[in-house]
């Protein structure tokens, strides 16, 4: 079902309502997504705590296949469903009449885009900070004997695709629901999504390097610099901020002030 700007009329200023103000229309979904993601990531960490040492030290053990390879297959299956579902949903429910959009609706959508990007950066946190550094820690305990170690299965094959999913969703949301982003392709938004996506691609370089080049866990080694360059592109968020504040200040001039 497609959505048009005419169908989504701005909510009247709710002086007596206890709900969120009109520009924070999606705030509950935003908070729920944060909560959901937190449960998933913390769940993964707890799973590692329970099964890491007991079954995750040797990839040739049957227990490894049961507890880790099976987890990998479940992750990949889930991602194979969620990727087309979410991106398809965003595309098929796109706004096909953006010219009719009111300033308040456009402001609201900028807020929602910011929430999408915020959820994206939350996923970047888990992938780029916690589970990334934990990789070094885990590979002091286990001797790396497979590309699918107990931390890689979560970091490389779930966390990385998940932030790609969320970054791509932010990109599609902007492209399908905001006039400026529909008329032209935002360079900073594209950089901020595509650059970190290349981190996922760099996994290939990393695994090649660990197989033929560096056998130890030297984190600052050149085989990891593909990840580093990819993450620099996250600085594109500065450009997204500037695009947003420029447009939002214009839009605020178009709406009447309320008490």
């Amino acid at each position: 079902m497609s959505v048009t700007s005419q169908e989504i009329q701005p909510v009247a200023a709710a002086h007596v309502s206890f709900g969120p103000p009109w520009y924070l229309r999606e705030v509950y979904k935003y908070l729920a997504t944060f909560a959901g993601l937190t449960i998933i990531y913390v769940g993964f960490r707890l799973y590692q705590g329970v099964f890491g040492v007991s079954t995750g030290l040797d990839s040739s053990e049957p227990a490894f296949a049961t507890h880790w390879m099976r987890l990998l297959y479940i992750e990949l299956a889930v991602l194979a469903v969620v990727f087309p579902a979410l991106w398809g949903y965003l595309w098929f429910t796109r706004d096909q009449n953006m010219d009719a959009m009111s300033p308040k609706e456009e402001i609201t959508r900028y807020f929602t885009l910011t929430m999408w990007i915020s959820v994206y950066t939350f996923a970047v946190y888990w992938a780029g900070s916690y589970f990334a550094e934990q990789d070094n820690s885990w590979h002091q305990v286990s001797v790396r004997d497979t590309p699918f170690t107990a931390n890689h299965i979560i970091e490389f094959y779930f966390n990385f695709p998940l932030y790609v999913l969320l970054g791509g969703s932010a990109w599609i949301y902007a492209r399908t629901r905001l006039p400026l982003y529909a008329k032209g392709i935002s360079v900073p938004l594209t950089l901020a999504v595509v650059g970190p996506f290349m981190i996922l691609v760099s996994v290939g370089f990393n695994e090649w390097g660990h197989t033929f080049w560096f056998r130890e866990e030297f984190f600052a080694a050149p085989i990891h610099w593909g990840f580093v360059i990819g993450v620099w592109f996250a600085l594109g968020v500065g450009g997204i901020l500037l695009q947003q504040v420029e447009r939002l200040t214009e839009l605020l001039n178009k709406i009447e002030d309320a008490a």
Binding site: I39, I40, S54, G56, D58, S60, E61, H67, I74, V82
Partner: peptide, 28 residues
């Protein structure tokens, strides 16, 4: 979508909760 995702993940995790046996090696 997130709810569906969580549900699937929970189901997967339940399937995996088998009693672990000790790992006998270190990847050699």
């Amino acid at each position: 979508t997130i709810k569906k995702f969580l549900g699937l993940l929970g189901l997967g995790a339940c399937c995996l909760m088998l009693a672990p046996s000790g790992a006998a090696a270190h990847g050699e």
